[in-house]
């Protein structure tokens, strides 16, 4: 079966002087379109490295990574930037919104880099904010929004380019329980609407919302099961 994400023997080695550290020791997996996958593992397990490679923020030392059929493992920086722009929607633990811009201008940012004309950008940004339930907050700056609202703006920004995958890195790590529930419900909704979501987390309750859990430890996948079986 060919998926939207295909990893074949992906290894990542970091060198620091004469010391070599193997963060990923051969990852093979396929994620199909519409899947909701949680990657779980303790800190130091290599899940951050995996997330960087999945997000095209870094390239593997060895192995192949096909994203929507495109081999991105040998790409240069500028090409990777374009792939990130078109294929991946990021949601970060720290929200990473630009404080000086109102919500809709934060959401339109990926479209600016994609070269989408102005009028269309605003239209799509407002629509995406509507999807996450913030239609009445488009002109607010991040400082005027609650943590949960800010993260929803970030989700809207991830959605606005219609990416192949939404990559969420500990999206609830900085939120209170109410906002956590909101954001997870939003991800559920997106999943139900057919989005491919990869969620990196160390919290089992969060991972339990996904349809499939990849457990990673010492740079290798130790368990890959649908969520029902894990429970």
């Amino acid at each position: 079966m060919s998926g939207i994400i295909e990893l074949e023997g992906v290894r990542k080695t970091y060198r620091s002087g004469s010391i070599e550290f193997e963060a990923l020791r051969g990852i093979d997996t396929t994620i199909a379109e519409g899947e909701y996958v949680a990657v779980i593992g303790p800190s130091g397990s290599g899940k951050s490295t995996l997330m960087n490679i999945l997000g095209c923020l870094d390239t593997p030392s060895e192995g192949r990574y096909l994203l929507a059929g495109e081999d991105v493992s040998q790409m240069g920086e500028a090409q990777l930037a374009e792939v990130r722009n078109r294929r991946i929607g990021f949601v970060f633990q720290q929200f990473n919104l630009l404080a000086m811009l109102p919500a809709w201008r934060n959401v339109e940012l990926p479209l600016v880099y994609a070269g989408v004309p102005r009028a269309e950008r605003r239209e799509r940004a407002v629509a995406a904010l509507g999807r996450v339930g913030l239609a009445d907050r488009i002109d607010n700056r991040p400082g005027e929004l609650s943590g949960g609202q800010q993260q929803r703006v970030a989700v809207a920004r991830a959605l606005v380019t219609e990416p192949a995958m939404i990559l969420a890195d500990e999206p609830t790590g900085n939120l209170d329980s109410q906002s956590t529930t909101d954001v997870l419900a939003l991800l559920d909704e997106l999943h139900a609407a057919g989005r491919t979501i990869v969620l990196i987390t160390h919290e089992h309750e969060v991972a339990a919302r996904a349809s499939r859990n990849l457990v990673i430890r010492d740079g290798a996948i130790t368990s890959d099961e649908p969520v029902g079986a894990l429970a």
Binding site: G55, L57, E77, A78, A81, E82, R84, N85, R86, F90, F92, Q94, N96, L98, L109, P110, Y113, A114, R157
Partner: peptide, 16 residues
Amino acid sequence: VREIGLRKALGATPRV
């Protein structure tokens, strides 16, 4: 640095 990182993640090339 964070803003630059974010812009890059969202698709800004080094040239931009």
